[in-house]
């Protein structure tokens, strides 16, 4: 069955100029050029985008959900990284 060799590509679309490309979904295609065409047909039938990226799914390295706490939890108690942590008198005005 040919589909067995049809790689999966992740599709990212820039909706408007000035915005970042955002993940839209995935497509199957034999190579990058055809993946771009398939992505265009599948994900931009109503003017959803100005630019498309396709990336082989196999090229993505994802963090493990089990590591979520050790990766992201430590930032929760570092409130001094936020501007509201610091006191500036009202008379100083907006800073």
């Amino acid at each position: 069955m040919p589909e067995a060799h049809m790689p999966i590509w992740e599709v990212f679309i820039r909706a408007r100029s000035g915005l970042a490309h955002r993940h839209a979904g995935s497509v199957h295609a034999p190579d990058a050029e055809m993946a771009l065409q398939a992505a265009r047909d599948t994900y931009t039938r109503r003017g959803e985008g100005l630019s498309i990226w396709v990336v082989p799914s196999s090229a993505i390295t994802a963090s493990d959900p089990q590591d979520k706490d050790s990766l992201f939890e430590p930032t929760a108690d570092k409130i001094y990284r936020h501007p509201t942590f610091y006191e500036v008198p009202d008379e100083v005005g907006h800073m």
Partner: peptide
């Protein structure tokens, strides 16, 4: 356009199903 949409919807959904570990094939 409507029938083409149905085809597109099928593809979005196969892609969502594949994330659970069964190939589209």
């Amino acid at each position: 356009a409507k029938v083409q949409d149905e085809g597109g919807h099928g593809l979005y959904l196969y892609a969502a199903a594949e994330t659970l570990g069964t190939s589209r094939e």
